[in-house]
Amino acid sequence: MHTYNIHEAKTQLSRLVDEAVHDGEPFIIAKAGRPLVKVVPLDAPAVTQQRRIGFMAGQIQVPADFDTMGADEIAGLFEGKDA
């Protein structure tokens, strides 16, 4: 396990984290030779299934007047009229 001083870790943090994630090897950040923290990669579960766009194609029908459905009722509500 490698130990890096705080200045070196600060300037190269992105690379160090990438290496830890890729290699699975944790590293230690020290200040004045004294270990302060240990950085370890997380064991995140792998994504098993991604969401698919259009997975219900052909199963749902959208009315032709969808954009204007209920327009009179909505306008009446804004004008304070009862539905």
Results as ranks from 00 to 15, higher is better:
Tyr4Ala: 06
Asn5Ser: 08
Ile6Gly: 05
Ile6Glu: 14
His7Pro: 12
His7Gly: 04
His7Val: 15
His7Met: 13
Glu8Tyr: 13
Glu8Met: 12
Ala9Arg: 00
Ala9Phe: 01
Ala9Val: 05
Lys10Pro: 09
Lys10Phe: 10
Lys10Asn: 15
Lys10Arg: 15
Thr11Leu: 14
Thr11Ile: 02
Gln12Gly: 10
Gln12Ala: 11
Gln12Arg: 15
Gln12Glu: 11
Leu13Val: 11
Leu13Asp: 04
Arg15Phe: 11
Leu16Gly: 09
Leu16Val: 12
Val17Glu: 03
Val17Tyr: 04
Val17Lys: 09
Asp18Gly: 13
Asp18Gln: 15
Asp18Leu: 14
Glu19Ala: 08
Glu19His: 07
Ala20Cys: 12
Ala20Glu: 06
Ala20Asn: 05
Val21Trp: 07
His22Ala: 15
Asp23Met: 11
Asp23Leu: 13
Pro26Met: 05
Pro26Asp: 11
Ile29Pro: 02
Ile29Phe: 04
Ala30Lys: 04
Lys31Val: 11
Lys31Tyr: 05
Ala32Thr: 12
Gly33Ile: 09
Gly33Cys: 01
Arg34Lys: 14
Arg34Asn: 06
Pro35Lys: 02
Pro35Glu: 11
Pro35Arg: 03
Leu36Trp: 07
Lys38Met: 12
Lys38Ala: 07
Val40Phe: 07
Pro41Phe: 08
Leu42Asp: 14
Ala44Met: 12
Pro45His: 06
Pro45Glu: 10
Pro45Val: 08
Ala46Gly: 08
Ala46Lys: 11
Ala46Thr: 13
Thr48Gln: 14
Gln49Phe: 02
Gln50Tyr: 07
Gln50Glu: 05
Gln50Val: 14
Arg51Val: 04
Arg51Cys: 02
Arg51Trp: 05
Arg51Ala: 06
Arg51Leu: 13
Arg51Tyr: 06
Arg51Glu: 10
Ile53Trp: 06
Phe55His: 06
Phe55Leu: 03
Phe55Asn: 09
Met56Gln: 09
Met56Ser: 09
Ala57Arg: 08
Ala57Val: 02
Ala57Asp: 11
Ala57Gln: 06
Gly58Tyr: 08
Gln59Arg: 02
Ile60Glu: 04
Val62Trp: 01
Val62Asp: 00
Val62Pro: 02
Pro63His: 03
Pro63Val: 01
Pro63Cys: 05
Ala64Asp: 04
Ala64Met: 01
Ala64Asn: 04
Ala64Gly: 00
Asp65Tyr: 02
Phe66His: 15
Asp67Val: 03
Thr68Leu: 00
Met69Phe: 09
Gly70Ser: 00
Gly70Arg: 01
Asp72Ser: 03
Glu73Val: 14
Glu73Trp: 02
Glu73Pro: 02
Glu73Asp: 08
Ile74Thr: 14
Ile74Leu: 14
Ile74Pro: 01
Ile74Gln: 09
Ala75Asn: 05
Ala75Val: 09
Ala75Lys: 07
Gly76His: 00
Gly76Val: 04
Leu77Ser: 09
Leu77Phe: 13
Leu77Asp: 07
Phe78Arg: 08
Phe78Asp: 14
Glu79Leu: 10
Glu79His: 01
Glu79Asn: 06
Gly80Lys: 02
Gly80Ile: 00
Gly80Val: 00
Lys81Val: 09
Lys81Ile: 05
Ala83Asp: 03
Ala83Phe: 13
Ala83Tyr: 06
